[in-house]
Simulated scan of single mutants.
Amino acid sequence: MYSVPQPVSAVRTRIRQEFERHRFVNKLPVVDVLLFQSNADFQETMNFWRQTTHIMSYFKEESFKKGPKLPSSFIEGFLEGRN
Rank of each mutant, 00 (worst) to 15 (best):
M1C: 06
M1K: 02
Y2F: 14
P5M: 07
P5A: 06
Q6I: 11
Q6N: 01
P7S: 04
V8A: 13
V11R: 00
T13M: 13
T13K: 12
T13D: 12
T13C: 05
R16E: 11
Q17V: 03
F19N: 00
E20P: 01
R21W: 14
R23S: 11
P29V: 00
V30W: 05
D32E: 15
V33I: 08
L35A: 10
L35W: 03
L35D: 09
L35R: 09
L35T: 06
L35G: 07
Q37E: 15
Q37C: 06
N39E: 13
D41S: 14
Q43H: 12
Q43F: 13
T45W: 06
M46Q: 09
W49F: 11
T52Q: 14
T52C: 15
S57P: 06
Y58R: 02
Y58V: 00
Y58T: 01
F59S: 01
K60H: 15
E61T: 14
E61I: 10
F64S: 12
K66Y: 10
K66C: 07
K66P: 01
G67W: 10
K69P: 01
L70W: 09
S72H: 11
S73C: 14
S73I: 01
F74K: 05
I75D: 05
E76R: 04
G77L: 09
F78V: 00
F78Y: 11
F78W: 06
L79S: 06
L79F: 04
G81W: 07
R82K: 12
R82M: 14
N83A: 11
